[in-house]
Design a protein around this nucleic acid. Structure first.
Length: 613
RNA sequence: GCGCCCGUAGCUCAGUUGGAUAGAGCACCAGCCUUCUAAGCUGGGGGCCGCUGGUUCGAGUCCAGCCGGGCGCGCCA
């Protein structure tokens, strides 16, 4: 909503530079947003960059450019700042009206399908806080891409043949002597993800007791990988456990407004022999080779290139070349493919390089109404083909975060959500005594989700979050609930306008151009109407930045800053009780735009706006 | 040892492809509920941006070297 104006300004200034100085080549320059509105709405520091080639003071260049610039649509005036900046002031009412009325032409973004793979939790126990961040970040990326018009497919990779699943089977069998029917019984009468949480830690201890206990794991893993769930007990038990735990994970994520389009099962990659095909391709391209000597003899390996700037010169005598070139095992000497190999096959499929596809089945219908599909190696269902490998040029996203906080590894997501929901529900009930209990509960859970999702997004992804329960439980200050509260208050103004004065938003927005816009023109106060409106318009710029950097803290901080700006405005400038009709209307229009933009920003973070708080 | 990440207020963290006076929350202190919800607002104290050098009109941001902390480095996934 601001990007189009920035582009317009950029083009106009580039033209002015060409006209004024006849330069063949114009340096790359930015159109920035100055720190305060007093310095304008847009700022261009290009005069600094031109100073050297033109052998002129920045201030003089800025003055000359301001002179030759001419009129730019939507820009009220241009002022060369004494230090050399070119500051631009927008035509405020002309800026607000088409935006709040949603009359700007929609710009189509590049529409290549993009796959976002996230969550990918081992299906052997309840999901914990350590898993949460990847899911929240991945979900937010999907939402941001969709807003830009990019077709997105959200995939969740299920490692149903891994060591961790084998461990749980070992636990049921060796420690508890359970049959598949016993496990079914447990799954039907308890929360199996919680049950397995405890069982898994017991298995880990049991392995530590005696070295040969690990044999059970190896045996189980082998049976899992080579077994047919129809005939092999281990594979059947594994398939059952995985199915139930995956459903538990999906239920947990659904509480957080996180949904998926497709579950890709590692087992299907193996059974459909995706690896065999990827293997041939890798061999044909010499990407991997059979190591014949050293400790990796008999393994198919891939060279991991580590661009070391130091190795270009002067090898010390006796320092064998290639010694520090590392090799990654793709196929073990016993012929078993490693996780990396299977993942390579998955990536090949995602990029459409495999020449084959999964079969698909409907796994569930999600809370948002969308069908969730899953891969299968059996007979597929009709209607699933659109999910296939139409992903040419897709940008497969890499995992975002390395690991998150250690303390969080011991806390289950559902437990934390329950804690937050109970706390928020009690607070809602206290503040709204006449509110029915089920509504308190609903709003309480919306607040809980906001708190936890904002908490996961506010830190930059390079940061290791040390999970602090006190901080995560807070609803004050820079938190999700603070943002919701601002949106609820803004909405409330319109509820009251409707109730008390029978005026709808549409009426307020119509015919505004005939009213003097002194309210928008007012300066002096830092948190005036224009400051709120202008900041609200920057969402698209922030979204672009997020996509460029895959960094969501910027979106979180932007939304918070916007809410702060509004909160200050809200306390200072009444709307319902404002006596001057023109000021009242323009304020309402500005707040209408604010709530629209904040609601959008919250939606990108998967946060809902409650009806009241 | 090698690779990646981090070092900004007492604590937890932001800091836009290098730009205008380094910000926020928490904590602390002082105010504000007969006016649209006090999960809020206003004001205050608190900073060799780890250190040193370099590039630049301009460095918290880029480069080099140190110091301090984290993670990874398996025929695990």
């Amino acid at each position: 909503m601001i990007l189009s104006v920035q582009r317009l300004v950029h083009r106009a200034i580039a033209d002015a530079i060409r006209r004024q100085y006849g330069l063949a080549e114009i340096p790359v320059f930015a159109v920035e947003v100055p720190p305060t509105r007093a310095l304008g709405d847009l700022a261009v520091p290009v005069a600094f960059q031109l100073a050297r080639t033109l052998r002129k003071a920045p201030r003089a260049i800025a003055q000359e450019l301001a002179q030759t610039l001419g009129a730019i649509p939507g820009v009220a005036r241009v002022e060369p700042a004494p230090n050399g900046y070119l500051n631009l002031y927008l035509d405020r009412s002309a800026y607000l009206l088409p935006r709040v009325r949603q009359q700007l032409p929609h710009e189509a973004a590049a529409s290549e399908k993009t796959i976002v793979e996230h969550t990918a939790i081992n299906p052997n126990k309840a999901a914990h806080i350590g898993h949460l961040r990847n899911a929240v970040l991945g979900d937010a990326l999907g939402r941001v891409l969709r807003l830009r018009g990019t077709p997105v497919e959200i995939q969740n990779y299920i490692d149903d043949l891994g060591v961790q699943v084998a461990d749980i089977i070992v636990g049921f069998r060796e420690l508890e002597h359970r049959t598949l029917d016993d496990v079914r019984q447990i799954a039907d009468t308890t929360r199996i993800d919680y049950y397995c949480w405890d069982l898994y830690s017991r298995v880990t201890q049991w392995y530590d007791e005696r070295q040969d206990h690990l044999d059970a794991r190896a045996r189980t893993l082998h049976e899992l990988e080579h077994g047919d769930p129809g005939v092999n007990d281990t594979a059947a038990m594994g398939a059952f456990i995985v199915d139930r735990i995956v459903r538990a994970h999906l239920a947990t994520m659904a509480r957080l407004n996180i949904a998926y389009d497709l579950l890709t099962y590692e087992g299907d990659i193996v059974r459909l022999q995706f690896w065999a095909h990827a293997f041939e391709t890798l061999k044909a391209q010499n990407a991997i080779y059979l190591q014949t000597e050293g400790k990796l003899a008999g393994c198919w390996v891939m060279k991991i290139e580590e661009a070391s700037p130091a190795d270009a010169r002067g090898d010390a005598p006796g320092n064998d070349v290639g010694d520090d070139a590392r090799e990654k095992v793709i196929v073990r000497s016993n012929g078993v493919v490693t996780y990396i190999g299977k993942d390579l096959a998955n990536q090949f499929w995602k990029l459409g390089l495999l020449g084959r596809d999964f079969h698909y089945r409907v796994f569930a219908t999600q809370a948002n109404g969308r069908a969730l599909w899953a891969t299968t190696s059996g007979a597929g269902e009709a209607g699933a083909r659109e999910l296939g490998y139409s992903t040419d040029g897709a940008d497969a996203s890499k995992p975002f975060v390395e690991v998150s906080g250690r303390k969080g590894l011991g806390v289950k997501i559902d437990d934390l959500l329950d804690l937050l929901t109970n706390k928020a529900t009690a607070e809602v009930a206290k503040r709204n005594p006449e509110f029915p209990p089920e509504d308190c509960r609903r709003v309480g859970s919306q607040i809980a989700v906001a708190a936890i999702r904002y908490f996961m997004l506010k830190y930059s992804r390079g940061k290791l979050i040390v999970f602090d329960i006190e901080e995560a439980l807070s609803f004050e200050g820079e938190t999700g609930p603070y943002l919701q509260y601002a949106a609820v208050r803004a909405n409330n103004i319109f509820h009251k306008l409707q109730e008390r004065e029978h005026v709808a938003e549409a009426e307020i927005l119509s015919g505004l151009e005939t009213l003097p816009a002194v309210e928008l023109a007012d300066d002096g106060e830092a948190h005036n109407l224009w400051a709120v409106v202008f900041e609200a318009s920057r969402l698209d710029e922030v979204v672009e930045q997020v996509v460029r950097s895959l960094e969501f803290s910027g979106l979180a901080k932007y939304a918070f800053g916007l809410a702060q700006l509004f909160s200050a405005f809200y306390h200072r400038y009444p709307i319902l009780n404002e006596e001057q009709a023109d000021r009242k209307r323009w304020r309402a229009a500005g707040v209408a735009y604010f709530r629209m933009q904040l609601t959008r920003a919250l939606d990108l973070m998967g946060i809902e706006v409650p009806s009241r708080m």
